[in-house]
């Protein structure tokens, strides 16, 4: 599973430009899917199972990562201006490295990285990207997207990378597909969605096409065990996080209890998640067509929306086991 994680988290795929990630995932999914389609927005939808009179279940994990897009090049200095794709944290930007699709590496800077009062980060408009290479060969046209760049690091049982949000959710889905080996009493649609980070755009049309009975989103959630962190009860290594609610979704108790009883029956460690800020694909899926009861299995994660998103392999395993168990029964 580590090889799969490494290949997905190091892949390039900011919101709206998920095509490389999609082709990687398609390659991994092909042996375990009964059919694979790409819709008009670029969502990759893999069907497993024929239904046999049971449920149509949608499983959603988003392929995109936060990034940015070059909008303008200063005519003389050559610095690029950009606009964000997703929620960038300003205090992490100065000195960050990005990679454009054509391979050019850029470094983000700001004239006053600590802010004029040294108290708060400058506005996004103050940042620029340096792509100079000394002889003017490196070129990035306006309209070219970039993703942050850091390789995967292992520290014992913990993994540190950019874009764990939400490639680790994609990994959980792919691992569950592999373990199911096309054996499920349900008709399961694994949707690898686009454009979650810019406002949950891909999941809605995907759910419209799939027209599921129930849905499960897979995404990272804020671990509350960071130093002086929000005490939300979520700890790294304490198991799969079964969502109770977030600002965009109140999980129907039947869905929540379905997940809890499966975890308890199979002896899978779990924790309950009440998230105060942020939401997932499930927030949109729940209101598609006549409504879709939706839940979420979350992977606890530290330092979300930075290049050092940290997860614990025990939690990842627990999420895979829980999802597989739910889809098998």
């Amino acid at each position: 599973m580590k090889d799969l994680i490494k290949s997905l988290v190091e892949a390039w795929g900011p919101s709206g430009y998920e095509h490389h990630v999609r082709e990687l995932i398609r390659g991994y999914a092909e042996p375990y899917a009964d059919s694979i389609e790409v819709d008009a927005l670029g969502n990759l939808i893999c069907r497993v199972g024929q239904g046999e009179g049971k449920q149509r279940i949608m499983v959603a994990a988003h392929m995109d990562e936060i990034g940015l897009i070059a909008t303008f090049q200063e005519p003389r200095s050559g610095y690029l201006r950009f606009t964000p794709l997703g929620g960038l944290i300003h205090t992490t930007l100065h000195g960050s490295r990005v990679r454009f699709e054509n391979g050019v590496t850029g470094v983000i800077g700001a004239p006053e990285p600590l802010g004029s009062s040294r108290q708060n980060a400058p506005d996004l408009d103050s940042f620029y990207i340096d792509i100079s290479d000394g002889d003017g060969a490196a070129a990035v046209a306006p309209g070219t997207a970039a993703a942050f760049w850091r390789p995967l690091e292992e520290r014992g049982i913990r993994l540190i990378a950019k874009s764990m949000d939400d490639r680790i959710g994609c990994v959980v889905a792919l691992e569950a597909m592999r373990l199911l080996a096309k054996e499920t009493p349900h008709e399961v649609y694994f949707a690898f969605t686009v454009q979650e980070e810019v406002g949950i755009r891909g999941a809605r049309p995907a759910a419209h096409s799939i027209d599921p009975d129930i849905a499960i989103a897979l995404d990272v959630t804020l671990a509350g065990d960071e130093y002086k962190g929000e005490r939300n009860g979520i700890r790294l290594g304490a198991g799969a996080a079964i969502k109770v609610q977030d600002p965009g979704l109140i999980v129907p108790p039947a869905i929540r209890d379905w997940m809890i009883s499966r975890a308890e029956a199979d002896g899978i460690p779990y924790q309950l998640e009440l998230l105060k800020a942020g939401t997932t694909d499930a927030a949109q899926i729940q209101s598609v067509r006549a409504g879709v009861p939706s839940g979420c299995i979350s992977i606890p994660c530290r330092f979300i929306h930075t290049t050092s998103e940290t997860v614990d392999m025990r939690d990842v395993e627990a999420c895979v086991q829980l999802l597989t168990g739910l889809l098998k029964h």
Binding site: A40, L41, T83, R201, H208, S209
Partner: peptide
């Protein structure tokens, strides 16, 4: 080169099963 504002495209691309 300036990404402010929105258009009908915001609604149209999400309609039904998605529209390029």
């Amino acid at each position: 080169t300036q990404p402010g504002g929105g258009t009908d495209g915001g609604s149209i691309h999400l309609a039904n099963g998605g529209v390029a």
